[in-house]
Nucleic acid binder design. Structure first.
Lengths: 349, 349
DNA sequence: TACTTTTGTTCAAACGTTGGAACAAATATA
DNA sequence: TATATTTGTTCCAACGTTTGAACAAAAGTA
């Protein structure tokens, strides 16, 4: 095999007849080291292909420059975009990120947190799994004094920084839009109300209906995991309802897709008979026909703000605990699945 | 802030009146330590909430138990599935993975490799960015004696373990199928032939045409990045051809989608006038209408085999260099976009 | 009883880097 | 010239864990 023995700071020191600590200081740009030695140390470092041993340095300074990021799944345009954005921002500051997926499982999330703590990450950025109701593992992070920032799937009680969109407002935007399209009976397929974001979406939906003086029919509200299959099944149930809705606001794009698919199979016209609105602006929403009206969550912005909040926590380490809660405005992207009032010569979308 | 001072092996030692080394040995199940002390050490460790310092242990044993995984993007069903599978297999063996995305950029890939080496990973698993033609960074990994395993996007010349599907055979399967559907003029929208996998797909396509005694028209072969946009543009070009194809084999699902979209806009019937076959079995291929015939790449299996190959490398560290090249059989998933011979009472797909 | 073997533990050095204290040399100030 | 300050470096201990060698005590063998 190749050259296995690693070059260390000592090797550089030997070449130049210096001590390791002088070399270390030169590399770290210590003010007391002369420009001359700094330059020569740099040169020798390059020559002998020196690679600093991060483990040793991390151990010594008690800082790993590693940040753990826990997301439900990378295979989601929202999370992967947030991830990219976080990564960009943190790399600039010299942090590397360890991405872990919880796959929406509470148990995997706990194991992941343990693994990250074990790896001595300097902090954790997370978006909770749907299953998670017990936050003791997150308390564990907090109790270690490690910065913790949540995005999208957050939890108020934890008392940590949070960046997300205004879910309550999203629901208002959706309902406002549907009402404008003359919908009178709007159903809601939501996520489980034990999670903050879905609770807010449901609350927004209820309040918006009330705002428009529409009757609130509890039979038209569902809570589920928001998978495609959930969407299909609940849509079927809705069709069997003695008094069918004329619009369905689905709190997730995959479930919206399932609902749409079922309607197509049953030859029910969308949006003429039933309008559909999703949530998340997954790429496929613009691809299927009819294209799905949905909510854009500003993933890149969320990622950027999350990284910034995190960096602030790292730097100001022990300032008085003022929480950063940032709530972005959502954006409604209107597509064919909800456009009852069609333009005769509309633009091609 | 919470309890900041970390508990160490020393704290356990103090409680029990032992030395740190005895505690370390007890925790690592050293044969010379008595069962009694092992038990009591475990107990105290739990009581005072001891968390081993991975940095210190990694530094000492010269092994980080961290594996870097480089993929073009996590936001792809194929890569995210491979990732999940790799993660599962490696976690069992006590390895944690650091996921990094190259975003198909050569430059980002290089920076990522540096970051991973800096983080002292025990090995690297990668799938090359499309842009990558220069492998010196990968040679760098090899020269450090760190195990390197490639999957899907590999490169023969590097001389490392590789796991992927048989791209050459895939093309044969696609062409065989299209010929069976009575297609006579089959175009190919491929990836850049400087990457091994796309070169093989193109070669397979050529050979398969020859096998079926179909004329090979160089005007019907394209190389591109396989984005959705590429698919649209090339489809447009194909339509303007004096002698239109009656089928297009696209080496990526996104490009296939773009092509399909363009055909729909132009009111060209798929598959009746032009059949389409994609590659990769991305979820949307079954969602759009018509659903897209495509190639399934067995992502979970690839991930599993990749992890296994990696573990073998780690364990047998310096055995004679016998390469593990594993080529899986692809699977053709036939959907509506290529089914010219429709069944009258076919199953609903 | 004397000697070997086994068992359970301690000792000490190491992994590579860092940073404060110490120190000598060079330079500045009186 | 004597003293204070600055500059550039070395010294040394530390970060927390691991591991081979050393060692004493207990157990086994003659």
């Amino acid at each position: 095999m190749g050259t296995k023995k690693k070059t260390t700071i000592k090797d550089i020191a030997n070449v130049l007849g210096l001590t390791p600590s002088a070399v270390s200081k030169a590399l770290n740009n210590h003010p007391r080291i002369s420009e001359k030695t700094k330059v020569s140390v740099q040169q020798v470092a390059k020559d002998i292909n020196y690679q600093p041993n991060y483990l040793a340095s991390a151990l010594r300074r008690g800082k790993s420059n590693l940040v753990g990021v826990i997301i439900p799944r990378a295979n989601s345009s929202f999370f992967s975009a947030v991830l990219e954005s976080i990564e960009n921002a943190l790399n600039i500051e010299g942090y590397n990120i360890i991405i872990s997926q919880s796959y929406e499982s509470f148990e995997k999330e706990c194991r992941t947190i343990d693994a990250l703590l074990f790896t001595q990450v300097d902090g954790i950025i997370a978006s909770l799994a749907n299953e998670t109701k017990d936050f003791s593992y997150y308390e564990k992070i907090k109790s270690k004094g490690i910065p913790l920032v949540l995005f999208d799937r957050g939890e108020n009680d934890l008392g940590v920084d949070y960046i997300g969109i205004d879910d309550y407002k999203s629901s208002h935007m959706v309902v406002d839009h549907l009402v404008q399209q003359n919908c009178k009976r709007i159903a809601h397929i939501g996520g489980f109300s034990h999670t903050r974001i879905f609770k807010n979406r449901i609350r927004g939906y209820r309040d918006a209906l009330e705002k428009h003086c529409l009757p609130l029919d509890e039979d038209l509200i569902f809570e589920c995991n928001l998978t495609k299959k959930n969407g299909r099944l609940i849509m079927e149930e809705l069709l069997n309802h003695q008094n069918r809705p004329d619009a369905v606001y689905v709190a997730g794009d995959y479930a919206a897709l399932g609902a749409l698919e079922f309607l197509k199979e049953k030859n029910i016209k969308v949006p003429e008979e039933i309008a559909i609105v999703g949530f998340g602006n997954e790429p496929f929403t613009s691809l299927v026909s009819p294209s799905i009206t949905t909510i854009e969550q500003h993933s890149t912005e969320i990622g950027k703000l999350t990284a910034e909040a995190f960096l602030r926590r790292i730097k100001e380490s022990d300032t008085p605990p003022v929480l950063n809660k940032m709530i972005l405005d959502p954006e409604l992207i209107i597509r064919d699945s909800s456009k009852k009032k069609k333009l005769i010569y509309g633009p091609f979308i």
